[in-house]
């Protein structure tokens, strides 16, 4: 009986994280899958989203800015606005440059965010982290807190999915695809390429911020150590590529698949001899890294390849 409950709880835990990663992967899909814009700072957007809501919603504390005790909804919205602005700032600097430079710039932002979280104690409480982040639906259905929160996360995932799927099928998405395939032609067709790309990047960043905010309210404690930024970035990339860049269902499927595999690698490393335990984490990352290369080499289009909607008149 206990084992059953334990397994169920683990399942809920797993599903919640998958939902959160799914939202972030959808965000990356708007940036990379739709538009071909590189982002290697996903972890930073995630962390910024988490910190903004943490500062906004936690109780006042002498050890860092705020908290302001705002309602969770306000915190989450602020998180999305904040990450959206961060995305906008990066765009304003790099938008006209080659893709590689955008990628490098996002690494730079990630690094600066990491340093900022660690060193700006007045803002983030530094390495001690922020505790006591409220969980919004606590006590709503007594005894089923985890399950209710899972419901919240899945609802958010569904909303994000529907919203960006709609964008994909709208003229806006068509222009983005045109830009991705042939920027010059899109420009020649009179589209303001720069503006479309900025919009896509900002929307993607906001989804990442939302994921981070939901994560903060899920775990209720965050610290710089909790964000292995470049690993989160890497995992989300593997999710999108495995699922199928450009395909939103693929993005969600990729998040499920890779998170399950990632959790599964723990089963393998769990059987290792005692003195290997400290290195288990590295072994797991190694396995996912190899998986990425295998996917790139053998099935680059992912499990669910992109299927752009056909124009009606065809």
């Amino acid at each position: 009986m206990d084992g059953g409950v334990g397994l169920l709880n683990y399942g809920i835990f797993l599903a919640t994280l998958i939902g959160i990663y799914g939202i972030v992967t959808l965000g990356l899909n708007v940036q990379w899958g739709y538009t071909g814009m590189f982002n290697l700072g996903i972890g930073a957007f995630f962390a910024v989203g988490a910190y903004i809501t943490a500062i906004a919603t936690s109780d006042p504390s002498p050890s860092h800015l705020g908290g302001f005790g705002l309602p969770t909804v306000a915190g989450v919205i602020l998180a999305m606005i904040g990450t959206g602005l961060l995305g906008l700032a990066i765009c304003l600097v790099t938008i006209t440059l080659r893709t590689d430079y955008l990628a490098i710039a996002t690494i730079g932002i990630a690094e600066i965010v990491r340093l900022g979280l660690k060193n700006e104690g007045w803002l983030t409480a530094g390495v001690r982290g922020i505790a006591g982040i409220p969980r919004p639906v606590e006590g709503l259905v007594p005894g089923f807190d985890a399950l209710t929160y899972l419901g919240v996360v899945l609802a958010a995932l569904l909303l994000v999915y529907l919203a960006i799927e709609r964008l994909y099928r709208a003229p806006w998405g068509r222009v983005l695809r045109a830009i991705r395939e042939n920027e010059l032609a899109a420009q020649a067709a009179g589209k303001n390429v720069v503006q479309f790309r900025i919009e896509a990047f900002v929307i993607g960043s906001m989804a990442m911020g939302l994921g981070g905010a939901l994560y903060a309210h899920f775990v209720t404690f965050i610290s710089p150590e909790a964000f292995r930024s470049e690993f989160a970035t890497f995992l989300v990339w593997v999710m999108l590529i495995a699922g199928g860049s450009g395909n939103n269902r693929g993005a969600v499927v990729g998040a499920v698949l890779i998170w399950v595999i990632w959790s599964g690698t723990e089963l393998i490393t769990g059987r290792l001899p005692e003195d290997w335990v400290t290195r288990a984490g590295a072994l797991r990352v190694l396995m996912i890294g190899v998986l990425l290369q295998v996917i790139l080499l053998t099935r680059r289009q992912g499990v669910l390849p992109e299927r752009p909607p056909r124009p009606i008149d065809e």
Binding site: F38, L40, T99, D100, A103, E230, F231, F234, W237, V238, I241, A282, L283, V285, L286, I288, G289, V290, L292, Q293, L296, R300
Partner: peptide, 15 residues
Amino acid sequence: ILLISSFGMALILRS
């Protein structure tokens, strides 16, 4: 694609 691959390679080497 090479960019993504090399990013993955970075994590492989580090692990």
